[in-house]
């Protein structure tokens, strides 16, 4: 009941649910919500049957674009995105990890040009024996997806 009310309280906007608790503020950071003027509700450490403890973000009057929500796919691949209009869920959006990830990941190679010059980082998403890897398109080093450093 409680959860339903929270979602229903949003007339228009975006709800991001099922964010692992330790990733909530990373999501805030990646979506640049700190500089967003819309009404934003954050909740964290909510009980979740699926993942134990979860976070939730509600952004009023703004439907996030797909390339924005897909940025979350890297750190919270199982998050649920709902776009709300007039209190109704009008879109349940699947998260798709983009082929290339820009800006949000920092290259782990201290000798990489991106760590020394004002260069926007770019990583190619690759599969190596069933494991998702990110490959820096500059220094060509690979890192496992779950070991990628988020800026």
């Amino acid at each position: 009941m409680e959860k339903k009310l929270k979602v229903a309280a949003l007339r228009d906007g975006t709800v991001i649910d099922h964010i692992p608790s330790d990733k909530l503020f990373k999501v805030v950071q990646i979506l640049h919500l700190d500089t967003c003027d819309n009404q934003i509700t954050l909740a964290n450490n909510l009980e979740s049957k699926k993942i134990g403890s979860k976070g939730l973000v509600k952004i009023a009057d703004r439907a996030l674009e797909e390339d924005e929500t897909n940025k979350i796919a890297l750190i919270a691949p199982n998050a649920k995105i709902n776009i709300i209009k007039d209190f109704e869920v009008v879109e349940k959006r699947p998260l798709i990890l983009p082929e290339e990830i820009r800006e949000i990941v920092q290259c782990g190679n201290p000798n990489c040009i991106t760590n020394h010059q004002p260069v926007t980082t770019r990583f190619k998403v690759m599969k190596n024996e069933e494991e998702l890897m990110l490959k820096c398109i500059y220094c060509e080093r690979e890192v496992k997806r779950d070991q990628a450093k988020i800026r």
């Binding site: 190679n109 990489c112 500059y138």
Partner: peptide, 22 residues
Amino acid sequence: LEGAARYASEVSPVPIINAGDG
């Protein structure tokens, strides 16, 4: 620095030949 040549090739209007990047 590693990746310097790829970066240079992105910003350069003329071709870059990498003679070693780190």
